[in-house]
């Protein structure tokens, strides 16, 4: 099997905050209506996490489960564990209407770190960051493309489509230019 490669090969930028592309990261989109029998077991089997509440992301070690919409969850886990997790989900949701897809290679993931990391995103998204709560997963846009982000470990993690990874890296780098602090 070929080696997994992230979208930008781990590109980095040092400005008033540091930006780095991380990954490859295992990601599963799980679609099932709230209340589906076996849904909690499926999320737990893949991530060890409880079912996240509305707009929340729950973490267990290197795995996480995020609420994306009333019938969509984003499961994050080590890249090599996706196949086993999909099997666990299929077993937990057997006979239930659901969809679970490996989207690891369809996404790019960034970390924005430093005391002023929020300012990098404030310039790019129409989001009230003062009201963003700990553990809140916010879906919005970064300039012209869809993005989801949350605060974690003294910075932010941002997920976007892989096809716009270079665009988002450019956005984040420009937004983090030294001297352009808010």
């Amino acid at each position: 099997m070929s080696d997994p490669v992230s979208a930008l090969g781990g590109a980095t930028f040092e400005g008033f905050a540091s930006v780095r592309e991380i990954g490859p990261l295992g990601m599963i989109t799980l679609r099932a209506k709230a209340g589906t029998a076996g849904l909690e077991a499926a999320v737990h089997a893949a991530t060890g996490c409880a079912l996240p509440a509305q707009r929340r992301i729950v973490r267990q070690g290197d795995r996480a489960a995020g609420w994306m919409s009333p019938d969509e969850f984003l499961l994050i886990l080590p890249y090599g564990d996706v196949a086993a997790a999909l099997a666990g989900i299929a077993q937990a949701l057997q006979g239930q209407h659901h969809l679970a897809v490996d989207v690891s290679d369809a996404r790019a993931v960034f970390r924005i770190e430093g005391a002023k990391a929020d300012q990098v995103l404030r310039k790019l998204s129409p989001v009230d960051f003062d009201r963003l709560e700990p553990g809140e997963l916010r879906r919005s846009r970064a300039a012209q493309v869809a993005a989801a982000f949350w605060a974690e470990d003294g910075g932010f993690t941002l997920v976007c489509f892989r096809s716009v990874a270079a665009y988002v890296m450019g956005l984040l780098s420009t937004s983090a230019q030294p001297g352009s602090e808010l």
């Binding site: 707009r55 129409p126 009230d128 916010r138 879906r139 919005s140 846009r141």
Partner: peptide, 12 residues
């Protein structure tokens, strides 16, 4: 009403 976000016009 589905996710509770106060969305600005450009997110819609």
């Amino acid at each position: 009403p589905y996710c509770g976000v106060k969305a600005e016009e450009t997110e819609l």
